[in-house]
Design a binder for these strands. Structure first.
Lengths: 286, 286
DNA sequence: GAGTGGTCTAGACCACTGA
DNA sequence: CAGTGGTCTAGACCACTCG
């Protein structure tokens, strides 16, 4: 058990890489106990040094993923976590800093650190980047959601690739429309892997009040952590024209999204058609 | 001169807010010396407590803005900066951490901390989010640039608003085409404020080898720090059709960008028309 | 080997929240 | 008031780069 603590006086254990953050066999260690990060392989071309705080980050991530700490609830205080992992508070802090920067955790001074969620804040639709041309986002009020269809089907080659499934695997397919100020603006086709979302129906979707990702969190334990979008300009086909009440010559934004949970596991593919005559897709570059 | 250092033994200066990072009248202070952050006003409704590292961040920002440290060159080491500002290395570190997160500085272990630039790395076009459908970005090779026009004109109301000018102020207007694999793909109209870019000509643009923002840095001392884009789907007009060799029925991505230098000063407005039949605009959501 | 950024600790104190 | 996150310091040591 090489301990990565740097003694100020006694120069013990100067050999080997500083790693291994096993919380030691204390009684308060969680079910995800002996957490070696599997980097001891001495033949590895890159010794893959990993700082302590990164290992702590992984441990926290595991507790998030396992559901030990649920969305919108508080995680233990920094002091508690430091004791639990047998490291200094500063090290825990740095781990949490990174998780907060990735929007997995939210710090609130004086209150604690909380698991981020899609189901609150009235920032509603964290991943939706469409904004009205004039007036603030709130002037329109919340979007009206209308479920057109929700059916079980089989993954096409394209969907299978996106969701890391095999062609023909069970998937759920949802089609819906979002309207702003009663004007249909977004037509979305959504594909979900079948097994994690077993039991999802059009009814449950329609009944739930709030963003879809909120329902996924509370009802299916699936938390969307990040997403990638590919954006193109397209013309609609006949069916899409009808649903969006648009002409066949109306150019639309095609927004193809793949959303990931923890561990970069793809959990949703979505294709949205956005009407951009009164709205725009906003992006910030850094 | 209230000093925010927390003595471990002598409990001096427990009154007032901890602020004021004036480097003291030491000889090594830069030209932007006495840098109070103007927050001493006792009548202010919010006392606006600002931590030390934020004040250091502002000081570093000023040195960047003033040109004391130029793009792609190294800034002083953390130890030096700590001595200069009379704070601990950890405090300088936190300031630099944030600036690095904002892509203003780049840390390189063992070498130093460098001023970020648009003119290197062969990541070329940091702000361009268009990628080819198949194959990596490099398979196409670099974009071919073709300047169509570069003329002085007067700011329209729209351009004036975007660039924080008055209608009729002098502006520079550039039109160019970017081609990938010899296929015209992007048509861009660019508006620049006249005075910072005095002397910019089509010739200089054509001669310069590298991203336009690189030329702005080295020749005009204007560094683009961040940008916002508004994206829509549109159909081209006749002239645009001809330049992009596209039909009038080809939907295009309209990408309207406003780019900012330090202090959120808008320095460029740009409207791009992207052909998205072989490329897509990529965005990452967190 | 010297210099630079990166990690880790221990301890003190500050600002904010809520009972 | 106690508890939480936030700031700041000082010091030791590690990993990386380059001459």
């Amino acid at each position: 058990m090489i301990d990565p603590k740097f003694e100020t006086d006694s120069k013990l254990t100067p050999q080997a890489f500083s790693m291994n953050a096993t919380p030691s066999p204390s009684s308060d260690s969680p079910s995800t106990a002996t957490a070696h990060t599997g980097q001891v392989s001495p033949t590895s071309p890159t010794p893959a040094f990993s700082p302590l705080y990164q290992q702590i980050k992984v441990l926290i991530l595991q507790s998030l993923q396992s559901g030990e700490w649920k969305p919108s609830s508080a995680i233990p205080s920094e002091v508690d976590l430091a004791a639990r992992y047998k490291v200094s508070q500063g090290t825990v802090r740095k781990a949490i800093d990174e998780l907060a920067a990735e929007n997995l955790l939210v710090r609130r001074q004086g209150k604690g650190t909380f698991v981020a969620t899609h189901a609150e804040h009235h920032i509603q639709y964290r991943f939706l980047k469409l904004f009205p041309d004039n007036g603030d986002p709130n002037s329109e009020g919340p979007a009206q959601r209308h479920i057109i269809d929700c059916k079980r089907s089989r993954a096409s080659a394209e969907v299978a690739r996106a969701l890391a499934l095999r062609s023909g695997d069970a998937v759920l397919q949802v089609r819906r429309i979002l309207s702003f100020a009663s004007i249909p603006t977004i037509l979305e086709d959504i594909w979900l892997p079948g097994s994690p979302f077993k039991g999802l129906t059009a009814e449950r979707l329609a009944d739930y009040n709030g963003p879809m990702y909120g329902l996924f969190e509370t009802e299916f334990g699936v938390r969307m952590v990040r997403a990638e979008e590919k954006i193109r300009a397209v013309l609609p086909d006949e069916e899409q024209c009808a649903l969006l009440r648009a002409s066949a010559q109306t150019p639309l934004l095609s927004v193809e999204r793949i959303a990931y949970t923890y561990s970069d596991l793809p959990m949703e593919m979505r294709r949205g058609l956005y009407l951009t005559d009164k709205h725009y897709y906003r992006n910030e570059l850094n």
